[in-house]
Structures are given as C-alpha cells and as structure tokens.
C-alpha cells in the first residue's frame, strides 16, 4: 500500500477527515457529531497516514507527542469541569450564551457559546491522543528478548547488595524496528 498513489490519496483523505472532524466537533450540540465522533474520525485519518507511510515516517511527519495530547485533553476537560466551582457553582455546571453579531443594524447571524464546548475540546484531544498512542504503541513494538549482558550486570548488583537504579531502558524506538505499516499491508 505504500505506493505514491496511496500516499497522495491518504494525504487528501486526511485533509478531508480533518475538516469534517472539525465540522462534526462544532456541530455536536445540535446535530449528530460532537467531540468524540470528531476525534475518532480524525484518528481514522491519522491512522491512514500511519498505515500508508509507515510508522517512523509518519511520526516524523506529525512530530507529535501523542502521550502529551491525551494528558493535555484530560487536563483541559478536568479544568473545564472544575471551572464552575470558582463561580460558586457545582462541578460540571454548564452555561451557554447566544451572541448576536450585529453591526450597523446588519445581522451577521448568531453564535452559541456553551461551556460544554470547552469540555468537548478535552474529549477531542483525549480521543485523538489516546487512540493514536495506543495503535502506534502496539504497531511500533518489537519483541526483543533481554540481552545476556544486562542479566550479568543485574546479578552482579544483587551480589553487592546495593540497589542500583537499573540501566534506563531506551524510551525512543530505534529506527530498525518494524513498522506497523509493514505488518498491516
């Protein structure tokens, strides 16, 4: 699937997914849609890129810390939920306001600002970050049996009865790992 055609098309599809997901996200209150569906749709687009380009390349393209994304989303949702407390209301108390845009007597339509929208932003981010993170983590991982060398080191440490912090495992995935894309083809 990693042909040029597929890659080009997937880029286009990604763009469409992005736009439509934003659309769905904004529409959520009145029409089918909302933060969750929007997020999942965008994830579909992102995963398509991952599948067609291979994980490492796609990672380089996005340069995103998906771990952080859902952390941020969770934080945002939490804060949106806590915020009403500072206004002497209960947790998760919602409010909305419809603002009319009217300049010089000409109506430019009206926009609705709902506090639940803020919360939905959090949902949106968590869904994107979490789902992409899960799938890329599973896709990236390559099983490698523990090296002999490490074993010796640890056993030596044990004999000396000193609890040393174990050598840090490399968090970054090296380039030679098999990408999920290859697996998915």
């Amino acid at each position: 699937m990693t042909t040029i055609i597929a890659q080009t098309i997937s880029k286009a599809v990604f763009a469409i997914c992005l736009m439509y997901s934003v659309n769905l996200f904004i529409h959520g209150a009145n029409y089918p849609g909302g933060g969750f569906i929007g997020g999942v749709l965008l994830v579909c687009g992102i995963i398509l890129i991952y599948v067609t380009f291979g994980i490492n390349r796609a990672d380089k393209m996005f340069k995103q810390d998906w771990f952080g994304w859902f952390g941020f989303g969770l934080l945002f949702a939490s804060i949106a939920a806590i915020f009403p407390m500072f206004k002497n209301h209960n947790y998760f108390r919602s409010a909305f306001n419809v603002v009319h845009f009217e300049f010089f007597g000409i109506s430019f339509g009206e926009l609705e600002f709902a506090s639940s929208m803020m919360f939905d932003v959090g949902v949106y981010f968590v869904v994107i970050g979490g789902l992409v993170f899960i799938i890329t983590q599973i896709g990236k991982h390559k099983y490698s049996p523990p090296k002999e060398k490490d074993e010796k080191n640890v056993s030596l440490d044990r004999k000396d009865n000193i609890i040393l912090p174990e050598p840090k495992e490399e968090t970054e995935i090296t380039d030679n790992t098999v990408s999920a894309a290859e697996g998915l083809q």
Partner: peptide, 16 residues
C-alpha cells in the same frame, strides 16, 4: 466532589 476531581486533575498533570 474534590476527592475525585483533584486526583483526576493530578493524573492529567502527571502525564504532562
């Protein structure tokens, strides 16, 4: 609600 809200918030902060 704070015993629930605070650790939720803290969990998010810990990730960040």
């Amino acid at each position: 609600v704070l015993p629930i809200a605070v650790p939720l918030l803290a969990g998010a902060l810990m990730i960040l």
